[in-house]
């Protein structure tokens, strides 16, 4: 017990780093994902082509590679990030691409009649989007978004590669130093708690949207 008390501060500090990356990635990449998905559906071909390429690259290469590239690669062309900023940048770009694909599917699932009905009622495009389309899209995409959110919790462990002290790294350091698996068991428990909270929150959102069909 005293051993756990000893290592708890470093594990919690690592967990806090993981949570920060998790939250900022989510807060930035969901709205960005909506915007990119609208771009993917736009009638302007060059924009569509650029965004398709972006999504293809982001989904087609490992996030680990993207992290390394942003932190070690971009300085070559003069773009220098701090470790933490580099991690956020890579995570947001990567998750925006995944969310954009999910939202694109959601938008395409809305019947044309909903847009026409809104148009005949003289609603503007923006009003139609905000009051009618986006609420329906959210309901459609919640399960897929939920998968990505749980993945994101676990993906935060990749930041060790650019030397950030996250939860998994804190556990690894303690295990190597003290030659015991206890820290890693604790790390597993903390990840489970974090994914548990995320899943619970998502279930609440899902319930909120189950009032209508």
């Amino acid at each position: 017990m005293t051993y756990i008390e000893q290592i708890a501060p470093s594990l919690l500090a690592g967990a806090w780093m993981s949570i920060k990356i998790f939250l900022w990635t989510l807060i930035a990449s969901i709205p960005l994902g909506v915007l990119v998905s609208l771009g993917l559906l736009s009638k302007f071909k060059p924009l569509r082509a650029i965004l398709k390429f972006y999504v293809w690259v982001m989904r087609g290469t490992p996030l680990l590679l993207q992290l390394i590239f942003v932190f070690y690669g971009l300085p070559i062309i003069g773009i220098i990030f701090q470790r933490y900023d580099a991690a956020l940048c890579a995570f947001i770009m990567n998750y925006t691409a995944y969310f954009a694909e999910i939202f694109r599917g959601g938008f395409q699932a809305i019947p044309e009649g909903q847009f026409e009905s809104a148009k005949v009622l003289r609603l503007t495009k923006w009003q139609t989007l905000m009051h009618i389309v986006i609420p329906q899209v959210i309901k459609i995409v919640i399960p897929s978004i939920g998968n990505e959110v749980v993945n994101l919790v676990k993906d935060t462990s990749l930041v060790y590669v650019i030397g950030l002290g996250d939860l998994l790294r804190a556990g690894n350091v303690a295990t190597a130093r003290d030659v015991t698996l206890v820290p890693l068991v604790l790390v597993g428990v903390i990840y489970l708690a974090m994914t548990g909270v995320a899943s619970y929150a998502l279930r609440k959102v899902e319930q909120h949207y189950s009032k209508w069909r």
Binding site: A118, I132, K139
Partner: peptide
């Protein structure tokens, strides 16, 4: 009034 009404299901 559309054939399939097209009410907004979320409202």
């Amino acid at each position: 009034v559309f054939q399939d009404y097209q009410l907004f299901p979320n409202l």
